[in-house]
Design a protein around this nucleic acid. Structure first.
Lengths: 310, 310
DNA sequence: TTGAAAGCGCTAACAA
DNA sequence: TTGTTAGCGCTTTCAA
């Protein structure tokens, strides 16, 4: 393994200079930096993080806690952002109660990470306190944004006069939706709360189920872009007009929804994960990160319209 | 932060002794070990991994590569096993092509991990070569086991005379199933390939869809225990006999299936993740780990029987 | 069974 | 701008 002093020797400079050059620290002439970088690359030098952390006091690692691996986008978003910022992601899956208890008891993070990101883990007060006792910044992302997304979607639909709204949940999602819909003033019929896989085919199936149980709702909210697309396609194949007969709103899958012209809540999970990372990194830098989480906003497109007369 | 020498001082021994005692190394009297351990605990001492790795040459970290966070059980299984063995899990999500390319180009793992676990990432030859060049052990888990599971289930059902089999896919699963079923000699009707969320409700919905499209298949294969349960319950509620009218096999959810008496493939993802970790850790110890992946076997229970006469 | 001492490969003062 | 010098907090010989 080539070490930093190997590089230093090869480049004819001191290890300190190599260190500065490679990290982009000031105090190195551009020429030297370029040369050293090149030599290091040629030698396939990889820094020894342990030594770096030990000497520098920073670990370049963030613990990411997740209650499950279910919310994939959130995790992927956070992972990508952290990776890009040069941080390693230490994953801790707090799935079963026993493992979770042990985790907080042993708190294996001591001196191992620069910060903690809790994704969709609803921390109890004592768990939260335990984390804070590590005295590294802790940022957590709750599921509340999803509520906000739903709220937006429902608000939009109600503004258009809809009252008969079906909800399609994709993945293993908590069931708090029902309450939320009710709270927003919608009637929730059990047969209009459906589950589906996050696939187009899943969405198509859902429509089959809805068609079998007339009357049709006047609007459908999906938690997945793929499902929204499936719903859209299947309705059309059945001769229904969107949004003439049925409106569709998706709570996720912004790219897909945009491509197909489906009204959708944008700026959801992946972005939320990235923002959480921003907040955490800012804190690490000692800054106050004032920005709010990515605005969950509604992109109104062609899939929603006024409630049809029937 | 209390350091090892703080503990040593408090316990009236040398740092070397503390090190040995805490790691369970031989050469420390039991009395000393117990005492030191107690003192360390009382002082809430947490080892500085960086220093430990630097001095010891082992990093106690494994890179876990995953193409997506979709196969949750696999990841969770691996994470749990690694954690238990005292290893940190460095997560790398190789989702988009661009990120993946960059990952293999920069190979940010150098001197950072003791091994690599590739879960459901189908590595190209050059990617594989890149990983091996790190010269740490690499273990990968492919999706083939799922095929094996399906093969088992289909074999069992065909042995019982079934030909009309529905397949319920849960989650974002690849579509290679169809081909596989055909390859196994089954007729695949499009309306019998269904998607569902991994929930009981999802399974119930699926049955509704099937009932609407008579004739009913004589058997149903699900990729989720919850779905199998939902199918079971809904069929019964509709007055159908299981397995008299319809047989059910689940490819996952062994615990649930066992509890309810559903024929199921056992030893699937979670265990596969754990086994991969075993293999990796054995390699790290310099041993040859000869055991095969957990036998994907079929636990035949009351939910499957001979094809009904109709 | 225990301790002393020498690093592991970096970063961060401090000098030059 | 660059180099020299101390460590960072452990593990591991080697001696006692």
């Amino acid at each position: 393994m080539t070490s930093m002093s190997d590089v230093a020797r090869a480049a004819g400079v001191s290890a300190a200079t190599v260190s500065r050059a490679l990290r982009g620290e000031p105090g190195v002439s551009e020429a030297t930096r370029r040369y050293v970088t090149e030599v290091a690359k040629k030698m396939r030098y990889a820094i020894a993080r342990d030594a770096s952390s030990l000497a520098g006091g920073r670990r370049y690692a963030i613990a990411v806690l997740t209650a499950d691996v279910a919310r994939g986008d959130l995790l992927a978003g956070a992972e990508g952002a952290l990776r890009q910022a040069g941080y390693d992601v230490l994953l801790y899956v707090l799935k079963d109660a026993e493992g979770r208890r042990r985790f907080f008891e042993e708190l294996p993070l001591g001196r191992r990470v620069d910060g903690v990101l809790a994704l969709s883990v609803h921390l109890t007060d004592s768990e939260d306190a335990a984390l804070r006792s590590l005295d590294v910044p802790v940022v957590s992302v709750r599921d509340e944004d999803l509520r906000e997304a739903l709220r937006l979607a429902v608000g939009h639909l109600m503004g258009l006069g809809h009252r008969d709204v079906a909800l399609v949940l994709a993945g293993d999602i908590d069931e708090f939706y029902d309450e939320l819909l009710v709270a927003e003033g919608l009637l929730v019929r059990p047969e209009w709360t459906l589950w589906s896989s996050s696939t187009v085919a899943g969405g198509e199936q859902v429509v089959d189920a809805l068609l079998d149980a007339e009357p049709l709702p006047t609007a459908v909210i999906t938690t997945s872009g793929e499902v929204a697309l499936g719903v859209f396609l299947r309705l059309r194949r059945d001769g229904r007009d969107v949004p003439g007969d049925v409106s569709i709103v998706s709570l996720e899958g912004p790219d897909l929804a945009r491509a197909v012209g489906i009204t959708a809540v944008e700026g959801a999970w992946r972005e939320r994960g990235e923002h959480a990372v921003d907040v955490l990194l800012a804190t690490l830098r000692g800054e106050e990160h004032e920005t709010k989480p990515p605005t969950v906003h509604l992109a109104v497109r062609d899939s929603t319209g006024p409630r049809p007369e029937r």
